[in-house]
């Protein structure tokens, strides 16, 4: 039986949760609203409803170029991080692997450190190597950042795999490539896909590392930042709403694939 005091605490805490959710979501919802209606002297003018800002953003060549850069970066970075995650996990999972902890530390480091450190260390390194900044440097920055996530998921799945599966496969005369192709890969596939989706979300939104590595190639968040410095317009509201819709769609795709407990451990 719950006491009256306990119910009161639960109720107050529930109100608090509602308040916090309001603080988290109202800025976003209000923004979405003002992307389609105008505000006049503190009143919402419902008659002004129009999707014109969305059309105007869609025909802005700078926005389209940045979107193309973002997609390009995400494809390369997520692809690289996924392949590396599998290779590294297979390595660290081996019995008696040399330097396992050092490997894991360097994989997790860019994710744990403030992004400004990751960003400027790559900037300094590329300047010293004489590499000019552009898509390639952004891809490297995003890859080291999202690798922590893709690696973690693959590694956890690999750890849970019964050793007997691989042993049985080699006992039956399969080569290590055959074992990888027919036993390991199918077993790891769902972790790989979830990791790639998470990596995609991170790459899509990444700003604090990208700023240091972009040169004159802008990704979507950088373009948004540049537009925002000018002021508030309905076009920005519209673009912001589109970006949010994409993030939320990715988040929902991920949430049906994994339990939140798998996020960190």
């Amino acid at each position: 039986m719950r006491s009256r005091g306990e119910r009161a605490v639960d109720l107050i805490a529930a109100l608090f949760v509602a308040l916090v959710l309001l603080a988290l979501y109202s800025p976003v919802l209000i923004n979405a609203l003002f992307s389609v209606v105008a505000l006049d002297d503190g009143r919402i003018v419902w008659e002004s409803f129009s999707l014109a800002p969305y059309r105007s953003v869609w025909s802005d060549p700078d926005v389209i170029a940045s979107l193309r850069n973002t997609v390009q970066v995400a494809l390369f970075a997520v692809g690289a991080a996924t392949v590396l995650a599998v290779l590294f996990a297979l390595y660290t999972d081996r019995e008696g692997a040399v330097g396992r902890q050092a490997m894991e530390l360097t994989i997790y480091l860019p994710f744990l450190l403030p992004p400004i450190v990751t960003g400027l260390s790559l900037l300094v390194a590329s300047a010293q190597l004489g590499v000019s900044r552009g898509i390639a440097t952004i891809v490297v920055g995003h890859t080291v950042f999202v690798l922590a996530v893709t690696y973690r998921l693959v590694r956890t799945r690999l750890e849970a795999m019964p050793r007997s599966l691989v042993e049985a496969s080699s006992d039956l005369g399969a080569s290590s490539l055959q074992t990888f192709r027919h036993i390991l890969l199918p077993y790891l596939l769902s972790a790989i896909v979830t990791g790639a989706l998470l990596a995609l979300t991170l790459s899509f939104d990444e700003t604090l590392i990208t700023v240091f590595l972009s040169g004159d190639r802008m990704t979507l968040p950088l373009r948004l930042w540049a537009m925002m410095r000018v002021g508030f317009t309905q076009d920005i509201n519209a673009l912001v709403t589109v970006v949010l819709a994409i993030s939320i769609a990715l988040a929902i795709a991920i949430s049906v694939r994994m339990k939140p407990a798998e996020f960190m451990d």
Partner: peptide
């Protein structure tokens, strides 16, 4: 609802 904001773009949250 409490996890979802983790996925929302950082720059977008600042703007809003």
């Amino acid at each position: 609802l409490t996890v979802l904001p983790l996925f929302m773009s950082y720059i977008v949250k600042l703007y809003t």
